[in-house]
């Protein structure tokens, strides 16, 4: 059974930049980009990878949607290079980090404009603001059920068979479509690296561009992006300890000290 899949992706500041290079603009309540790259949020790539694997088995179509600034086109080109079928860029010309309800409303409007869908996949959270709500709010906006923390999606006779992570292990979930799922990482959805040829090709593929006005959302409210919540402060906490590096002339002597320190701190527990 071919599945009509939508994957929502977000471009973010490279989350792997070391802490010592990370700065914030407290006034703007924004991270300072500096020399850091913009990348696709890893969980969004896990979601796209999961979608690609599903499509390989079931057939169907993958449409990737992103709401973001001009640079977001790079994330969408990469998704096309990974072999998504179509890409839609909704231009964010408002607040750079809109609240999650604004984002969900934009994505829902875009999905409605697209028409039919079977399943929407999103990353469980993003590596910048780590909001962790877009999938849940989108499900409510669309009026469909949702399953969170999924790491495997298979097609069954009468719907989807999902595996999802829990605090103590995992669960299997049987679900009928339409459905929204949030994807988490596991060893099977590590995103594929696109082939050079596909990267080149992706630049020649069409990319649909929509503005907020095209979607019929409350554009002013969405641009302000703070009717759900507002960020009132952003700062870097300072906390560094002075690590005692165990010393000694021989490895044995150092390990001895290390062992003793372990006994000291665990002894009183």
């Amino acid at each position: 059974m071919p599945v009509n899949i939508i994957v929502c992706v977000k471009q973010i500041l490279d989350p792997e930049i070391p802490s010592r290079d990370f700065r914030v603009d407290a006034e703007q309540r924004e991270a300072v980009r500096g020399a850091a790259n913009l990348v696709t949020n890893i969980f969004c790539e896990n979601a796209l990878e999961t979608a690609l694997q599903l499509k390989e088995k079931s057939g169907g179509k993958i449409t990737v949607i992103s709401y973001g600034a001009d640079s977001t086109e790079d994330a969408l080109r990469k998704a096309l290079a990974m072999k998504a079928d179509a890409a839609i860029h909704i231009l964010n010309d408002g607040q750079a980090h809109p609240d999650p309800l604004s984002v969900a409303q934009v994505l829902a409007a875009a999905i409605r404009k697209l028409g039919e869908f079977d399943v929407v996949m999103l990353g469980r959270e993003s590596g910048d603001w780590g909001v962790g709500q877009t999938a849940g709010l989108l499900a409510e906006e669309l009026g469909v059920a949702a399953v969170a923390f999924v790491d495997k999606v298979e097609i069954g006779a009468d719907g989807l068979q999902l595996k999802r992570q829990t605090d103590v292990g995992y669960e299997r979930v049987a679900a009928t479509m339409p459905l929204v799922i949030s994807i988490t990482n596991d060893e099977h959805n590590v995103p594929r690296i696109p082939k050079t040829r596909d990267v080149m090709m992706s630049f020649r593929q069409p990319l649909t561009k929509w503005t907020l006005e095209d979607l019929g959302v409350n554009a002013a409210e969405v641009r302000a992006g703070n009717h759900y919540y507002a960020v009132v402060d952003l700062f870097i906490p300072v906390q560094e300890l002075n690590c005692e590096f165990v010393d000694g002339d021989t490895l044995e002597a150092r390990v001895e000290k290390f062992a003793q320190r372990i006994i000291e701190v665990t002894g009183s527990m």
């Binding site: 802490s19 990370f22 309540r29 780590g130």
Partner: peptide, 20 residues
């Protein structure tokens, strides 16, 4: 209600004010 939470993968802290 204002909530402090860690953002940017633990590199920064934010205070969020809930509007609704």
């Amino acid at each position: 209600v204002r909530v402090n939470r860690s953002v940017y993968g633990g590199k920064a802290m934010a205070t969020i004010e809930l509007q609704r």
